[in-house]
Each structure stands twice: as C-alpha cells, then as structure tokens.
Amino acid sequence: MSRPPVGTLIGLPVAAVTLALPAVLDDSALAVYILLGLAAMVTVGVSLLMGYAGQVSLGQGAFYAIGAYTAALLSLGGVPPPVGLVAAPVVAAVFAVVIGTPLLRLRGHHLAFATLAMQLILLSLAGQLDFTGGDIGLQAIPQFGVGSFEMGGAAAYAYLTWGGLALVMLVTHNVITSRPGRALRALATSETAAASSGIPVGRYKLTVFALSAAFAGLAGGIYCFYTGYVAPGSFPVLISIQYIVMAVVGGLGTIWGAVVGATAITLLLQGLNTLATVPGMPTYAPSVLSYAVYALVLIVVVLFLPQGLLPAVTGRLAARRDRTRQPLTEERDGSAAESR
C-alpha cells in the first residue's frame, strides 16, 4: 500500500463492515468468515514474499501447520492459550530462519520445489511421530481464553481472526514503507542490481521469509483453537497453492490485494460449493469445481493480469508494466529475452 489516501478512503468503511459482520452472520457463515480471515493472513505474507522478495514458496502451508501444531501442543500441555498463540508465529518464524538460511540460497524454481519438499517432509513426519498424534492428529484442544475467560462462540473467533489480520496488515505496512522496505522493492526486480547497490539482499530475504512464516504461524494458531483439532490432512499441498492463487489474484506486493484475493477466491469457491451440492450433481462436483477454479483463475491471472486484480482495478499499471518488461540483454535464464 504505497497510496495511503486511497487506502484510508476504502479502508475505513471496510473496517466498519468487518467489525459489524460477526454480529449478523450465522454460525456456518461465520466459519467461512473466519477461514477467509485466516487465509488472508497467510496470503499477506505470501504476497509480501513474492512481490517484495521475488520468491515463490510452495510450502507456506507448512508454516501454517507449524503454528497450528505449536499452539495445540502447548495448550494440550497445560500452557495458557495466549502463550500458545504467541508461540505459534514465533516458532514458525524461528523455523523459517533456521531452514531459510540454507534454502534462500536457492532461487526461482529451486526455492519453489525446496519449500514444497519442506512441506511434504513435515506432513510426513507429523503423520508418523507419536507426539504429533500421527495421522489422527491432536484433538480436544482447549478453547482459547485469557485467565478464567473462555472464548466460546464463533463470533469471538471472528474478532480474534480479523484482529490478527489487522495486526498482520499493520506490520506489513510498516515494513514496506520503511526505508529498507523501499529498497526491498528492488529485490523483486533484479537481485543483482539490488546487491550491487549495497542492499544486504540475503538478510532482507530471510527477514521477509521469516515474517511471512510468522503470519502463517499466527493463522495456524488461531485455526487450531477454533477447530479444536489439527491433523496432517488439514494442510495438504493444495492449501499452499491456494495461497499463491489468492496472492496472485489480488496483486503481488499489495496488502489490500492479498485480502481482496483471499476474499474473491473464498467467496467464489463458496458459491460454487453451494452450486455443486445441489441435488442431482455428481458427488465429485465440489472437488472438481474447486480444482478447476483454482487452476483457471491462476492461469488467467498470471497470463492476462500479471499485476493482479486490485492494481488492475485501481489502474496503476504503467509504472509496474515498465518494471516487469525487461530489456533484451537481461539474465540468460529467461524466455523474457526470447520473446522479444
């Protein structure tokens, strides 16, 4: 969000609606609302990582899972839920720093596959280890609460979720408007250029990676308290792809874009799900429709709206297009050169 006036103008009514919604929605609608908020939280991180560090993570679901398992294990062990919820993003971020130190030496498709591998390894381990409950996972996770107050209703979780999302957006806003944040912009375009102009590329990338992991971890923490159980099956590879779809749809590197993308995809899937469960539809209809939607949206947006939905709508194309179309002699790796 490099345009505070527009952000504020749209932001205030959006915030008002956001606050009012939990009071009027029923439980099943609240479930969608909460999952939407959680997805948006993760997507803000993915968008930051892709838009500002130019890195694709196919394993963001792993950090979501780490957050969920961390909070679940701690609170099952008798630790107060708030501590578990704080620990969730912290553990995810620490894990990201540890694993990111070697992984972030990889670029492009190497990093994409490495993060995918990370998620597959973690899921496989979680499915086999005793303390994570194997394939069955962890159940009977206590409700979230502070002291003697215990959160019961879904509306309370909705507030917790959207409060968390607001925090995530605020942190991201501060990061990208800071001086290092503006320098980060250069990273996504040309790492070599960024490095030669004295930007500590490695440290910045690691910071963004850890931050995106923390966001996913926080979302995972809230998720585990809300659902009351976690299992490896809750975090399939497809969930990581889903975050990429949402980030790409919204527009990479834009905070509101991530929220718009998450909202658009969640509502679209929800609508299709309603359609797919109409009597007479085949049993496989819901999964087929959701796969088809993810795929088509992803392909169409990447090819035809590479700057995403939100920037396309706000019409700030020119500058970005110049940035993404690069001259002939740029890096050998590219079909960018071949296509000219």
Partner: peptide, 23 residues
Amino acid sequence: GTTPLSSLIVTLGVGVLAYAVEI
C-alpha cells in the same frame, strides 16, 4: 513476455486443472 517463474506458476495451474479433468 511470460517469465520462466510465471510459466512455472502456469504449469502448476495446468496440473491442478488436470485434476478436475481427470476426476
């Protein structure tokens, strides 16, 4: 004008689309 990384994401999309067709 499609960069290799965009192409990777497109092939990812193709893989998911294939799920729908295959099912």
